[in-house]
């Protein structure tokens, strides 16, 4: 079996609210290999988005170890360590981690094709195949339109095109179909799983949608976890 793309061990995360510490995640561990998909489910506030933010370095854990594409991270103790970690996380997000949100989050000043081009450029890929990615995701005809000129479903497909254009090792998708109607959501999900299967990348998917979660290889229910944590 190939080595894991993503490994997390003993992850903990607290937030401060009203002067009190609120534990969100405690002692969480997980492992995802290339081509695998993991659904993260749980009630609102259970920490799904927080977990995804930890896994792509947008937030730092209180405790624990995260390894992505061979790069390991612990909570930095010194500001110099934090700066180094920020740079390594940025490099990973640029080249290896594709992030998809509930909203498409495209640059409104750029057309769909330019958004894909920008993302591929940041990942260090030669530009030129952007229209192909949009066509594969069914929005080739809208390539030169701007985000506010297309539907939510089309924008989300464009966001997926951006992620696949960067050829990531890991995709982190936070409620990617949450703002879409059932029909559009299914179509977007079909695209996501098909492309993930083709590319062989790993997928971590946070969702409320049980049907969507059921399409993943593994399931992690954060609601079921107690503070002791579970792997």
């Amino acid at each position: 079996m190939s080595s894991a793309v993503l490994v997390a061990r003993g992850l903990s995360k607290d937030f401060t609210s009203g002067g009190q510490r609120v534990p969100v995640l405690s002692g969480l561990s997980l492992c995802v290999r290339p081509g695998e998909s993991l659904a993260v489910v749980g009630r609102s506030g259970s920490g799904k988005s927080t977990l995804l933010n930890l896994l792509c370095g947008l937030q730092a854990p209180k405790e624990g170890l995260i390894t992505v594409a061979g790069e390991s991270f612990r909570r930095p103790r010194k500001s110099s360590e934090r700066s180094d970690d920020d740079a390594r996380w940025a490099e990973l997000r640029r080249r290896s981690i594709g992030v998809v949100f509930q909203e498409a989050n495209l640059m409104p000043a750029l057309s769909l094709v330019d958004n894909v081009r920008l993302r591929a450029h940041l990942a260090g890929h030669a530009t030129g195949g952007e229209r192909g990615w949009l066509e594969r995701l069914g929005v080739g005809a809208e390539a030169d339109r701007y985000p506010d000129q297309v539907s939510g479903g089309q924008a989300q497909r464009a966001a997926l095109a951006m992620v696949f254009a960067m050829a990531p090792a890991l995709i982190l998708a936070d409620e990617p179909t949450g703002s879409l109607d059932r029909h559009t959501a299914d179509a977007v999900a079909d695209c996501l799983f098909a492309m993930q299967g083709d590319s062989g990348c790993a997928l971590v998917l946070a969702t409320h949608d049980s049907e969507l979660a059921a399409r993943c290889d593994h399931l992690l229910d954060l609601s079921a976890l107690d503070p002791a944590g579970t792997e």
């Binding site: 640059m107 000043a109 750029l110 330019d114 450029h121 940041l122 530009t127």
Partner: peptide, 19 residues
């Protein structure tokens, strides 16, 4: 910039400027 296809980030910045 599009013609040169060299730096999409510059293209984005100029588009932002237009906005």
């Amino acid at each position: 910039t599009d013609g040169k296809a060299s730096d999409p980030l510059t293209r984005w910045r100029r588009r932002e400027l237009a906005v």
